[in-house]
Design a protein around this nucleic acid. Structure first.
Length: 743
DNA sequence: AGAACTATGTTTTTT
DNA sequence: ACATAGTTCT
């Protein structure tokens, strides 16, 4: 079979690789090494694959799926659990292309979406029957907000931990089955003084969810686990339906998820998990990388396979990333290596300030583009969403298209939440969070008035009737009655979800136009898209649950506005959202003291996780990585503060990188403080040796990245079109490209 | 006086 | 997008 042939090829042919041509890395990815081969062809029983970054973990899983299918395992009896839905889709399409048979019937997705789907198929709507609504983080923050005022925390101001932090603590405590006390002592020691308040919040938060039929991500998983634990029938049915369970990114699972996997496989133990402890970056969410170490205890007779060969990056990048992770306190040693030599050393960029950093990145991206790297083969990564603001400005002013990942999600934007809250009260009339949102839209109704109205329906058997009997004040009577009218109309039996959507829009549009008068058209387009999503659903409950778990990601504001080829877009991403992805050229920005590690991270476990985060960022690069930091940062009181480099950078052996200071003649210290717009004059550049050489059509050439090729055309004075043996045709700019004649 | 509205400053990471 | 402080409305 195909993988066997390739395997033998790899083992016996002793293939020669061109040391200066990193191109060969991608070639060798189509072959399996010995360890991968045994993982892929492993028979029944539990398998743990521990592997480093870029070692082909995911590829091993894909090949495993293809192998199972070639051996007549029905696709619908394979369950694939991944970290993101996108990765599940990608893996299934790759498996399909490897086999003649379709892999479409493989069940795959995130834990939460799968839990939701399985519970629904078992007739347990979320395990509780109907009337429950799954909430996401922004809802949880909303609840905390409501509770904070009712508990009298409003005046605590800045000293009180942020809502986000509280949500993290509460959900972390649930995930880990850890008392809040321990969690705060271990992870958030600076919040010890608020321990009592956090305890009260936890109680109130739990009560609020129970009273209003709300359920968060963790409740969903806990219900799934409970169902499997308590019902022998459910357990038997699921484990006989899914004969093979494959799990990606196992280091990011929590205890509940590990238990679920065990329960689902209880009568066959055909579980294969892949993971890397050095890439565990979700402990704040309850992920426990000791799950990996416990796997052999949990599944007796488990085979453990280590993948240590790296197929992604060049050796200079690996030397740097190995050096980063070697400072980690706890680690399970893996030494990554690649057979391929060559490649450029990582570049450390100390920039004067954030703007200089942004400009360096923009100029360098331009340079790589001119050398023939597509925009979609580059990415800029950072610790926190707002670190990229300066860069976004710079990119926009240079006319670059980019896609930012990890910022605000569509379902977190206000207008979508508004419309969804109408749907939510239709399936769950006790959902106070949504009522609150709807009432606040009314003119002359603020938090206090909304609260009063909600009080009156709190203990009512029929919230809708209670609202009808509430006496509105004259100033907002008209709007209130319009809302009640909508309730009556949407409550009719024979309406489809998309019919209800139309009614809701009829009511909401005037309000919507008033609130978002400045960018009304953009948001309107997104709502139209939402309607087409709604139209695909027969029942409302499924739609509500799915949008909470799995925001429809194909609705992207950028795509709608520009309708651009995604290949022409640069990716800006938080490191967390970049997990599992790879690019030729990666920039990591903001590696300054106080930004990376995050300011609130305390030495110990949290500090270690920040280090792994840098490791994950740097290992995304295939050919070249730039690590940059601004030496001046803006403090909260708008003063400039000197910042050193991140302590993680200082730990790196300087032999593993080269330093490149941005050429900054046009915005040196003197012009820095002025508000003048940037100078149109480009910084002077050193010309490469290629610029002086003469190239003619037909000439054989060699490029450090693209390898051997032949000149196809000379379209301009300093431009050549080269037809590369293995990279196709590229137009190169001789001022930038390091093109050399080949003998 | 209390509620609603407006302006201004800050923002960890997320299925 | 949210929190807070200051201002206007009822």
């Amino acid at each position: 079979m195909w993988y066997k042939a390739k395997m033998q090829n790899d083992l016996f042919e002793n293939k020669q690789t061109n040391d200066n041509d990193p191109r060969d890395i991608t070639d060798s990815r189509d072959e399996l090494n010995h360890a991968q081969f045994s993982a892929v062809t492993h028979g029944d029983g539990p398998v743990l694959v521990i592997a480093g970054a870029g070692s082909g973990k995911t590829r091993t899983l894909v090949y495993r799926m293809a192998h199972l299918i070639e051996n007549n395992v029905p696709p619908e009896s394979i369950l694939l659990l991944t970290f993101t839905r996108r990765s599940a889709q990608e893996m299934m399409s790759r498996a399909s292309s490897l086999t003649s048979q379709s892999c479409k019937r493989i069940i795959g997705g995130t834990f939460h979406a799968t839990a939701n789907m399985l519970l629904r198929r078992h007739g347990h709507h979320l395990g509780f029957g109907s009337g429950f609504t799954i909430i996401d983080r922004s809802d949880a923050e909303g609840i905390i907000n409501l509770l904070k005022s009712s508990l009298g925390f409003a005046g605590a101001g800045k000293r009180f931990p942020s809502k986000r932090m509280i949500v993290n603590i509460l959900s972390g405590a649930v995930n880990r089955v850890l008392p809040i006390e321990d969690l705060v002592h271990q992870q958030h020691p600076h919040l010890i003084e608020f321990l009592d308040d956090i305890y009260r919040l936890k109680e109130e938060y739990f009560q609020f969810k129970v009273n209003h039929g709300l359920m968060d991500y963790d409740d969903l998983l806990i219900n799934w686990e409970r169902l499997l634990k308590e019902s022998k029938d459910a357990r038997a049915e699921i484990s006989s339906r899914f004969r093979h369970i494959l799990v990606d990114e196992y280091q990011d699972t929590n205890l509940t998820q590990a238990s679920i996997i065990k329960l689902m496989a209880y009568n066959h133990n055909n579980v294969m998990v892949v993971g890397d402890d050095a890439q565990s970056i979700y402990s704040f969410r309850g992920a426990d990388f000791y799950n990996i170490m416990r796997f052999p205890d949990q599944f007796s007779g488990a085979s453990v396979i280590k993948l240590e060969e790296n197929y992604r990056s060049t050796q200079p990048i690996l030397s740097l990333t190995n050096n980063i992770i070697s400072s980690a306190r706890d680690k399970f040693t893996k030494t990554l290596f690649t057979k391929v030599k060559g490649g450029s050393r990582p570049v450390l960029v100390p920039a004067l300030n954030e703007r200089s950093e942004a400009r360096f990145i923009v100029e360098t991206i331009k340079k790589h583009q001119q050398e023939g790297t597509d925009l979609c083969e580059m990415a800029v990564l950072f610790r926190s969403g707002f670190h990229s603001y300066k860069l976004e400005m710079e990119l926009t002013s240079h006319g670059f298209k980019f896609e930012k990942r990890g910022g605000l999600k569509l379902t977190e934007s206000a207008h979508i939440k508004d419309v969804l809250s109408f749907f939510r009260i239709l399936t769950n009339p006790w959902d106070n969070l949504s009522w609150n949102r709807i009432l606040l839209q009314l003119d002359k109704v603020g938090p206090k008035t909304a609260q009063k109205i909600l009080e009156s329906i709190k203990n009512s058997d029929s919230p809708v009737n209670a609202l009808f009997s509430y006496k509105p004040a004259s100033s907002w009577k008209v709007g209130y009655q319009r809302m009640l009218e909508l309730l009556q109309n949407t409550g009719q039996e024979n309406l489809t979800p998309s019919g209800q959507f139309d009614l809701i829009m009829e009511y909401y549009e005037p309000i919507f136009e008033k609130i978002y008068y400045d960018d009304y058209p953009r948001r309107k387009k997104e709502l139209d898209q939402l309607k087409s999503v709604v139209a695909g659903y027969g029942d409302l409950q499924s739609f509500i649950d799915d949008t909470a778990l799995d925001p429809p990601e194909n609705i992207s504001a950028d795509e709608l506005a520009t309708n651009d080829d995604p290949k022409e877009q640069l990716i800006l991403s938080t490191i967390h959202s970049a997990k599992g992805l790879e690019w030729d050229v990666v920039f990591v920005l903001g590696l300054a003291e106080g930004r990376f590690p995050h300011q609130n991270a305390v030495p110990g476990e949290q500090w270690e996780e920040e280090r792994r985060l840098l490791y994950v960022a740097a290992t995304r690069a295939k050919k070249l990585v730039y690590l940059s930091y601004p030496r001046e940062l803006m403090t909260p009181d708008r003063k400039l503060r000197r910042a050193g480099m991140s302590p993680f950078l200082s730990e790196i052996n300087p032999g593993f990188y080269e330093i490149r200071k941005p050429e900054t003649p046009s915005y040196s210290a003197s012009s820095y403080n002025s508000q003048e717009s940037f100078s149109p004059k480009l910084p002077s550049r050193k010309k490469t040796s290629s610029a002086r050489l003469q190239f003619k059509t037909g000439m054989k050439v060699h490029h450090p990245f693209f390898g051997p090729g032949r000149i196809k055309d000379v379209p301009g004075p300093r431009r050549v079109e080269v037809s590369f043996d293995r990279h196709g045709d590229k137009i190169l700019h001789l001022d930038y490209a390091k093109l050399e004649p080949a003998e």
